[in-house]
């Protein structure tokens, strides 16, 4: 198993140096939005916190860590910093999981078009769509998190943001429930796009043959942010029959993602348990979070399909 203290150190260093938990080219965060020509200032601001965009990189790093973890059956705590340099950090930079990059771009583009259908015009902060610092918070790195959060808040304010429309549960939670405790004078209102769509009544194209899907609630939406009924309502409106796994809503079961960087093996075991439980209800699994998407997809076999809710709702289902 990897030594978690080493992992924490690496993440800390990277955020200090690059603003991200691992080195990523900045454009990778906002290049998807360029063709959309969104205003770069405005009071209603789409803020991704970069989590969707980081997912293809995370997936590739986890794959590499997984090989390392598995090759040492003795289970010795490994020196991660040594491993990363032996792998060559540069290799980690340039190799996001290729097919996932385009999926992520389609998801984000779909979210903008869904918001447009609900007559919500969003601005987008491009270079200032910074990483929110979720991982710093999750790892208890409070001082660095606070520093980072203040920077993010200032950048968003400087672009005129009043309402942040977020796209994933982690960023929603951190911006809505955590930032106010760390950033003095924090005054941004935060809503997940799913809440916005449900509230403003998006006109969804009704799928004639929607079919049965099973919903996987992400922990943070379900247990911390009360985003539970909205996705169900939206899916039903779009003509889908929404099935519930044994553990759902407030008692949903984690996909294992949060510990994938420490022990990919255990993260996979958790994901497998969850995938099997979901699969009992339907072979089409709808996720609401990029981490859930990547983790469940990584263990999905055969005819199981894991698909992000934005693609389902926008009718972009492949």
């Amino acid at each position: 198993m990897l030594n978690p203290l080493d992992v924490v150190k690496v993440i800390e260093d990277n955020v200090r140096r690059y603003g991200f938990p691992f080195p990523v080219p900045r454009e990778a965060v906002y290049s998807w939005a360029k063709p959309l020509r969104l205003l770069d200032r405005g009071s209603t601001m789409l803020y991704t916190g970069a989590l969707y965009q980081l997912t293809p990189y995370i997936a590739s790093i986890v794959e590499q860590l997984s090989a390392i973890e598995g090759s040492r059956v003795s289970g010795l705590a490994l020196k991660l910093s040594g491993i990363l340099s032996s792998l060559g950090v540069s290799r980690l930079i340039v190799r996001p999981k290729g097919d996932m990059v385009s999926v992520v771009e389609r998801i984000l583009t779909s979210i903008v078009s869904l918001l447009e259908r609900a007559e919500v015009k969003v601005a987008y902060p491009y270079e200032d769509d910074m990483y929110s610092g979720v991982l710093l918070y999750d790892l208890g790195l409070d001082e660095l998190f606070k520093e980072h959060a203040v920077k993010v808040y200032r950048a968003l304010k400087s672009r005129g943001a009043e309402l942040l429309v977020t796209v994933d549960p982690h960023t929603t939670h951190i911006m809505r429930s955590v930032y106010p405790r760390y950033v003095d004078g924090y005054d941004l209102e935060v809503k997940s796009y799913l809440e916005v769509l449900a509230e403003r009544g998006v006109r969804l194209v009704r799928e004639p043959s929607g079919g049965k899907v099973v919903i996987h609630d992400p922990c943070l939406y379900a247990r911390f942010e009360n985003v539970v009924e909205q996705p169900r309502m939206l899916l039903r409106t779009a003509g889908f029959d929404v099935l519930e796994p044994r553990r759902s809503r407030k008692m949903t079961y984690c996909c294992g993602g949060p510990i994938e960087g420490l022990t990919p093996k255990m993260a996979k075991m958790i994901a497998k348990t969850r995938l099997e439980e979901l699969r009992e209800k339907s072979g089409t699994i709808v996720t609401l979070c990029p981490i859930c998407y990547a983790n469940l997809r990584a263990v999905a076999e055969g005819d199981v399909e894991v698909i992000d809710i934005a693609l389902v709702l926008s009718g972009a289902k492949p």
Binding site: P4, R223, Y253, C254, P258, M266
Partner: peptide, 17 residues
């Protein structure tokens, strides 16, 4: 104990139970 806590997912199922 803190060093071992890194394995916590922060998923909150314990809180809810």
């Amino acid at each position: 104990a803190g060093k071992l806590s890194y394995l916590c997912l922060g998923c909150g199922r314990c809180d809810a139970s």
